[in-house]
Nucleic acid binder design. Structure first.
Lengths: 199, 199, 199, 199
DNA sequence: AATGAATGAGGCTTCATTCAT
DNA sequence: GATGAATGAAGCCTCATTCAT
């Protein structure tokens, strides 16, 4: 059933690109990349399907823009907060809380980034941006090992353990299996430090 | 009216259901549920696409069968190895190594189960089977807390941290970012115990 | 889901061809030729799908056998009962009641023949067998016109009117819109005679 | 991932919905509902197969729209022409000629409606619209019986006989077995009246 | 710039038919 | 002769993408 109704410019609305990215984020998290249709994104963004192609070349370009954008956002945030000269124990604490703050403020974006890690539709540049935080955390741990405050295991292993623990906690939280208050978050942070700390 | 072309029964070949499940597992891990086409599975299994429908009612029924099957396999394996009367420290170690053994022996199955957690195409029975191992690990931790050997934080939180750390480690391993030898595995196990252990 | 269960000859059962024809008749009437799948027929006949191909070359061969078989049955029945020397009024009455008797005794077969008239999957021989009764009825009406007892309109037109009225009545009956008792049938017969009778 | 092949909007062409309905009508009459493939309809309508789904939710929705549309058209036409105050004999004649006029002007639509009566793919609303003309004709006959000009048989039976005769005549005409000129049509009308008229 | 009808490849699924057992 | 698993073409429908308005 078609309506010959209104075409052309609709009532002014800025941020079109932004609303497309938001809608796409929500859809991709909910149903995955291949499970999301462009018209679904358009509907959620309250625009026409064709409009998406004024801002992004393709569906793939859209996921990649989303992925890169959020990955950079979180990296910048963590780097900005990082206390350069502070003791490792303090650096660890700050990173942890910064990550929690991000994952709490932008749960969908965080879920998106975690779920879409290494997906086949991510292009080279996206994958490149991918490693920054983990590289950074690895470096921090490696420095701490030199000081002898962290276990002398492979620093990459320790980093993945802590990162995994963090993601596991957040995922359980999104999925409603876990309440998180300040005490729990701080307790978890301490537990993760204990995991890597030299005894 | 169909073409009179040659179709029909080809030379015998056993294990068809098994080879479908194997092929589907590999495809789903590689490209996700929606990213995998039935003909791709068929090709990998070296059968005709239609044959899949003799064994499974639909693509959804296939993922669910896969999910349930592997989830049960791993649960049974962990439960069978669990040392009932042993000290918690020992129980923890056994579970850890059992999980590693499974994830190493069946990396694709393990990846599949982790990636497809809580996906929208999983049906009720599949989701029901989902909680068994985590419930079990939670109970173990809760018992240890009574003994005072584990931190007095929310046992669910501790469980998710350890589980997350484990998954993080295994994922880094599949993705080639991490070498895992016996020492690394044992070191990681100790680190995870340190995470939850009372100081 | 497959079972390696019983193959080969099942408990003796004669009339396999007959039960296939019966099942096919019911299915074709209910859902049409293209709407009926061979496995559905097999299930209704309580045999394996492949078995049908021992008796019929194809689905088309099956409909055609069915069509020809019933068409001949009804024709033979009508011809057998036809009172050669009797007055036309009597001949008309006999034919009418013979048709009603058949349509009542074999409602599915009658419905099948009416619904599948001139379908594209009927082959030459089937269509050839198609005309016999109508030709016969036409001849009867033409003779009656010579006697002056029937209207001097195109005999084919009169024949189609009567035949159409008969089919309309029977169809309304199968479809539950019409009760038919002996009085109704006799009344309808008289009405049809009045339709063609010279005034 | 889809091919980057050229797709998208082709040069304008109006009346798409109408041409889909026309093409579908022709196909359904020729090969039946299950015997008609959506691509066949699309080809006949000279549009892409997918376009049909912009206008109709499914193949079933398409048949139902077709059925309802034509059924209403014919009913409106008959009702509009019906001479309310005239004698029954005249009303009968008008209805008859109106039906013939419709069946002659729109032979495919008429064939479609007759062939698809009570098919399993017709939905509730379609079946509801189905009875109007027959109910109307029945009422007319019932009134005539009160006047004593029509036989005192079940009015539904008489209606079905006349309707059946009419359909039989038209069908023979479409199928090329019968020439119909004004005299034949008028003669048939008189014959049908004679069928139901009290003697 | 925005729209959304149109396109047509491709996805899931069905089913007529074959053939090893 | 009977079986039913296997085949693969074809059916219905979806959806990424284009482009006239």
């Amino acid at each position: 059933m078609q309506t010959k109704a209104k075409r052309g410019r609709p009532p002014e609305r800025a941020d079109r690109k932004e609303s497309i990215l938001d809608a796409a984020l929500a859809c991709f998290v909910e149903r995955g990349f291949h499970g999301t249709a462009i018209p679904q994104i358009a509907e959620k963004a309250d625009i026409a399907a064709g409009t998406i192609y004024h801002y992004f070349d393709s569906k793939e370009a859209l996921v990649n823009a989303l992925y890169r954008g959020w990955k950079q956002t979180i990296a910048q945030r963590v780097f900005a907060a990082f206390p350069q000269g502070a003791p490792v124990r303090e650096q660890f604490r700050v990173m942890w809380h910064e990550m929690v703050a991000f994952a709490t403020a932008e749960p969908t974006a965080f879920a998106f980034i975690e779920l879409h890690n290494h997906a086949s539709y991510l292009d080279g540049p996206s994958l490149a941006v991918d490693r920054t935080i983990k590289d950074f955390a690895h470096a921090m741990i490696a420095r701490a090992q030199v000081e002898g405050v962290v276990k002398p295991l492979d620093a990459w292993l320790l980093m993945e353990l802590v990162f995994g623990a963090f993601v596991g906690m957040m995922r359980a939280h999104w999925e409603g299996r876990l309440q998180l208050d300040a005490a729990a978050i701080a307790g978890a942070e301490q537990a993760c430090w204990d995991a890597i700390a030299a005894r």
